[in-house]
């Protein structure tokens, strides 16, 4: 079994609006797969369904061979799917390290009673969680900012904190929703390197992204959506020349169009 995720005939309607229209695709284990498409193509809806935020109208999602269709997020997180958000969703009321520690939530287990009584096991787990959060911050290069309030960091760093927090859940599959949006050229390159570094630790990554230079640079495979349907899929180079993709992005070519001079 090579695929880690299989999405089959996935449909999602919001009232009369069809966000996903019978989408089918697979993601290979250990790959970076990018999903591109115009606004409203259904990319974020797809993430919301895979991570369990929405239930699909029909169709299914299989993760590591088991159906996770309609599983709530606290189940999918525990199974090994984590995500970031297009519009940053950091916990502004916490430090950077605490944000990452929340990511450890699904891998730890101290409950109300054990934490109220501060039993030895609870204190030990808390210490370990803090240490693990620091390890992850070191991995993404943010250990210096650990004690700062999450909202006091520059925007580019906040994106990295979101990735660190998602990594803290120990995911097998990481969903990144527009990781480069709002970043400058240098920051985009850095985030690209970080994504590849994460993949090199054995994780599978799906990236929804508009920045084509980033998509072309890091992905093994690209899936192009339009109106909730797959219009192309393949390695980045073949996608660049795909006629359907050009039509969706650039518009239809008018036959026999003439330039004004001639």
């Amino acid at each position: 079994m090579d695929n880690i995720l299989r999405v089959e005939s996935l449909r999602k309607n919001f009232g009369g609006v069809v966000a996903l229209d019978g989408l089918t695709f697979e993601v290979q284990k250990g790959a970076i797969k990018s999903i591109i498409g115009p606004n409203g193509a259904g990319k974020t809806t797809l993430f919301n369904i895979i991570s369990g935020m929405y239930r699909p109208s029909s169709g299914g999602v299989w993760f590591l061979g088991e159906s996770i269709t309609g599983s709530p997020p606290y189940v999918t997180a525990k199974r090994g799917i984590s995500r970031t958000f297009q519009n940053l969703q950091l916990f502004a009321n916490m430090t950077v390290r605490e944000n990452v520690m929340v990511g450890r939530h699904c891998r730890t287990k101290t409950g109300f009673l054990r934490s109220a009584l501060r039993l030895p096991g609870a204190a030990k787990e808390e210490k370990r969680t803090a240490a693990e959060a620091m390890d992850i911050l070191r991995f993404v290069g943010l250990e210096e900012s650990a004690q700062r309030g999450a909202s006091t960091l520059p925007f580019g760093k906040q994106r990295v904190v979101e990735m660190a927090r998602a990594l803290a859940t120990d995911p097998k599959l990481l969903l990144l929703d527009e990781p480069a949006s709002g970043l400058n050229l240098r920051e985009t390159e850095e985030i690209g390197r970080l994504i590849q570094k994460i993949r090199d630790t054995g994780k599978t990554i799906i990236v929804v992204e508009h920045d084509m230079s980033l998509v072309m640079a890091i992905s093994e495979e690209v899936l192009v959506l339009d109106h909730g349907r797959r219009i192309a899929e393949g390695p980045p180079r073949s996608i660049q020349k795909h006629p359907e993709v050009l039509r969706v992005y650039l518009g239809e070519e008018i036959p026999h169009a003439q330039s004004p001079e001639s």
Partner: peptide, 24 residues
């Protein structure tokens, strides 16, 4: 000041993200 308190604060800080981190 524990895992539970952090989870509660994460709900206050942003429910979608709290859910995505596995907080029930």
């Amino acid at each position: 000041h524990s895992r539970v308190g952090r989870a509660l604060r994460s709900i206050h800080g942003g429910e979608p993200a709290a859910k995505a981190m596995g907080v029930h």
